[in-house]
Amino acid sequence: MANSKVTDIIFRMIQTDHLTFQYKKTDRVFRFPDITLSKQEHLLILGESGIGKTTFLHLLAGILKPNTGKVVINNVDITTLKANKLDLFRGQNIGLVFQKKHAITSLNVLENLEAHLFFSEKSKHLNKIETVLSQLDLLDFKTSKVNALSEGQLQRLGIALAVIHEPQVILADEPTSSLDDTNCKKVIELLIEQAAQTQANLIVITHDHRIKSYFQNTITL
């Protein structure tokens, strides 16, 4: 009996429990549904603007601290971590993909990936950079400044940055909303492919219904 409970917990990679959040100087309290994902299980969170999608994602990433409830990733309740520990935990276990901006403008493509591995203390993955860049069709732009990349290339760099350190969880905030259909398809397929390669959970929050078909689990806020 005890054994089965342990395995039960281990297989739950991500779990949230009665998460609520309230922005300062506002009355509205956001309440979020509990989610439980086992290893390599993906989730699409749909919702209209202003419903608190990004807030939820930031709570999952430990960027915001909830008023109540907990976020457990890989058996660690990140809401209890101290600031520095949380930063490192985020750097090591979570990959973030944003809608438009993804990287530091003062560094080039390669340097951004190196900086990520430096801060997440995963320099052993340095030799992976070339592979990831070639998979994402970015090898020719290795030394390009971030500003010089096209929107599609930027989005692919965002994916590279989100997977280079082999995180447990990839969190994507509207990754496809500003893309045309072709690029949208390309990006979501790449995301799923990379998540599979690193054996990570992929959680996408979006109002973009075009990518609904790629997910088995969907919740609507």
Binding site: A83, H102, S106, F119
Partner: peptide, 18 residues
């Protein structure tokens, strides 16, 4: 001006101190 860059660095795992 580059607050966003700094925020991104935080998502890379950098601490405030860094």
């Amino acid at each position: 001006e580059r607050a966003f860059d700094l925020a991104i660095l935080r998502t890379y795992g950098a601490s405030n101190f860094q």
